[in-house]
Computed example of a mutant assay.
Amino acid sequence: MLTLYYHPLAAYCWKPLVALYDTGTEFTPHPIDLSKPEDAALLESLWPMRQFPVLLDGATRVPESSIIVEHLDLHHPAATRMIPLDPQAALPVRLWDRFFDMNIQLVMQQIVNDALRPAERRDPQVVDAAKAKLDRAYSIAERHLSGQQDWAAGAFSLADCAALPALFYAGAIHPFDAHPAMTAYFDRLVARPSCARVLAEARPCFDLFPFRDGIAARFRS
């Protein structure tokens, strides 16, 4: 039996959740609250970095969101794969997974981390630099998505699982409304049942997000 240790607000937890829901793979969700010492100790016992998500598959412990999705494709294949079997076709999926994680998600997190610091330790230069990086990433994504059909790398895949949290949280901080292809892509993402389910489950935690006022009303009601 599969068990996923996660937090419903955590961006990197959304990636395997979308994959699990999209493929209809059965699993047991196990939310982790790091404010509870017993939960923190449990997570550390599963993955010493104390980072979620972690998938427990029998005796096998699988950390890191992209690796979890790869593990599911390898060991619990469904009718819909998140990474193509063909190695060449898999490359753009992995590329755009990395793109959304490294150039949008991680950059957005720099702004969040700055907002969580005491006011006297905040650094406007860090925020400005992060927003400039987001603008560059948005422009690249806009050009790419303008030439695509519906999804980031062909069929719905790992890349789109990564895009949902990256665009959701980044858009609440530094909107991409001026990019019509990105906006249309995001609308397709949030309308997909697996993605909508992840968002619905995260909704009770949105007040914990420091930029919660930037979350569109359609996701908060």
Rank of each mutant, 00 (worst) to 15 (best):
L2F: 04
T3G: 02
Y6V: 04
A10W: 07
W14E: 02
V18C: 10
V18W: 06
V18Q: 00
T25P: 08
E26K: 06
T28Q: 15
P31Y: 11
D33N: 15
D33Y: 14
S35V: 09
A41G: 01
A41F: 08
E44Q: 12
E44D: 10
R50D: 06
P53N: 11
V54T: 07
L55T: 01
G58C: 13
A59S: 12
T60N: 05
V62P: 01
I67L: 14
I68K: 00
E70L: 08
H71I: 08
H71W: 15
H76K: 12
A79D: 15
T80I: 14
L85H: 14
D86Y: 14
L91A: 11
R94M: 13
W96Y: 11
W96L: 02
D97G: 00
F99V: 01
F99Q: 00
F100R: 00
D101P: 00
M102G: 03
I104T: 02
L106F: 10
V107Y: 01
Q109E: 15
Q110M: 12
N113V: 12
N113W: 07
D114W: 00
P118Y: 07
R122A: 15
P124L: 10
Q125G: 06
V126Y: 00
V126F: 00
V127L: 11
R136L: 15
R136Y: 14
Y138E: 03
Y138W: 12
S139W: 06
A141Q: 04
L145A: 07
L145T: 04
Q148A: 12
W151Q: 04
W151E: 11
A153K: 03
G154R: 03
D160S: 11
C161W: 08
A170L: 09
I173E: 06
H174V: 02
D177R: 14
P180F: 15
T183W: 10
T183C: 09
D187K: 10
V190I: 15
R192A: 03
A196F: 11
R197S: 07
V198I: 09
V198P: 04
A202T: 13
F206N: 01
D207G: 14
F209V: 05
P210C: 11
F211C: 05
D213L: 09
A217S: 14
R218C: 10
F219Y: 15
F219M: 04
S221T: 15
